[in-house]
Simulated assay, not measured.
Amino acid sequence: MKPFVYNALPSRVIFGSNTLYQIKDELRLLGKNRGLVLSTAGQHKAASQVSNLLGEFSVGCFNGAVMHTPITVTNDALKIVMETKADCIIAIGGGSTIGLAKAIALNTNLPQIVIPTTYAGSEATPIIGQTENGVKTTQRTLKVLPEVIIYDVELTKTLPVPITITSAMNAIAHAIEALYSKDANPFISMLAEQGIEALARAIPIIYHSPLDSAARSDALFGAWACGTCLGAVGMSIHHKLCHTLGGSFSLPHAETHTVILPHAVAYNESATTEVMARVAKALGVSNAAQGLYDLAAQHGAPTSLKEIGMNASDISLAVEIACASPYWNPRPIEAKAIHNLLSNAFYGKRP
């Protein structure tokens, strides 16, 4: 056994069906009684439901969360926090809403209860990404780690299939990068393989039967497992590229992860042959990069940066941004090779 360091993260996790109805009890356990509910505009009905369940413990809703956590939106939300004298932040939704909750916590130290409705996994991490002046930056701090995560399988059944697939691919990316992370350890690696296997098993079933309870449960467990991996160890080239493309070119988050993942895996394959064999086994395929591409393509997910809004003329700038600051990756970061990676991803070439 190789030496390793593992830091467990202090979060309370409630997993099951109809767990949303425990929200008031969880607020009480935190010793709070003035919860502000966050969501995107599209999920305002879900936010209202949570607010109603809280009853007198709710101070209202803020439905302005958007992708990539722009500082301007955070500032608007902070004004509402001050006006309502909220003592707890409650987020229902995906990465956009959870990102806003984290940004508020970063600025106020208020506790968070998060209720994920997608498979992005950010709820399980002490990581926040924020966008200012067209640049997305990330930082790791326990100040933004949610105190409570409520996973309710029933809430994910209405998640549209296209979002389900890209969100699940986003989660798989966390686990794969955790397996070849310089901080890898046996516990997280085991969890990563379980997460990949659960999501790969769930995706085809949900694609054909979106209301399948067992598949939705597998997918939500996989999301938690992969998110825990993201929170426990460092990420590499895949996440760096996705943050660059999302923050600087406003590409959609989960779709960007879906497109980039097979190409990032192919980039690192020669330096991580043992890891890629484990990924392929978890996916049930012979080649990890090709298996990931096929998993997306066969279930209606985008496979090219072109189809999600990127311009070919932006590739060179993306390479420049991604290579601007040194970071660890199992294979050295080489601008020419990264340009080739992004070109393949732009045109949707199968690895």
Rank of each mutant, 00 (worst) to 15 (best):
D314V: 05
Y347P: 00
N311K: 15
I315Q: 04
N329Q: 11
M310W: 03
S313F: 10
A337I: 07
I338R: 02
A345L: 04
P332I: 06
A345H: 02
P332G: 08
M310D: 05
R331F: 07
Y347A: 11
S325R: 13
W328E: 13
C323F: 01
A312L: 13
N344A: 11
L342A: 04
N340Y: 07
A337V: 07
S313K: 15
N329L: 01
P330F: 08
A335M: 09
K336D: 14
S316H: 14
V319P: 00
Y347N: 13
A335Q: 13
S316T: 15
A345F: 04
V319N: 01
N311R: 15
L317M: 13
A312N: 13
S325K: 12
A337C: 08
R331M: 11
K349N: 10
A322L: 05
S313G: 09
N340E: 14
V319G: 02
R331E: 11
P330N: 14
Y347Q: 11
P326Y: 05
A335K: 14
A318F: 02
Y327T: 04
I321G: 00
N311E: 15
K349A: 09
A322K: 01
A312V: 09
N340H: 11
K349V: 10
A324Y: 04
L341M: 10
E334F: 03
S313L: 12
M310P: 01
C323H: 00
R331N: 10
I338N: 01
I338W: 00
H339T: 12
A324E: 13
E334I: 14
A322Y: 02
G348D: 03
Y347E: 13
E334T: 09
F346W: 06
L342F: 06
N344P: 00
V319H: 00
H339R: 12
L317W: 07
L342R: 02
A337R: 09
A337K: 09
S316A: 15
E320K: 10
I333C: 01
Y347T: 14
K336E: 14
L341S: 05
A337F: 01
S343V: 06
I338K: 01
I333P: 00
I338Q: 01
E320F: 02
K349G: 03
D314A: 05
N329I: 06
P326R: 07
M310F: 05
S343Y: 01
P326A: 07
I321C: 04
L342V: 02
E334N: 15
W328S: 12
S325C: 08
A345Y: 01
A312R: 14
P326G: 06
S313D: 14
A345N: 02
L317C: 10
N344I: 04
W328Q: 14
A337M: 09
I321M: 08
E334G: 07
I315V: 12
L341W: 03
I338V: 15
L317G: 08
P332Q: 07
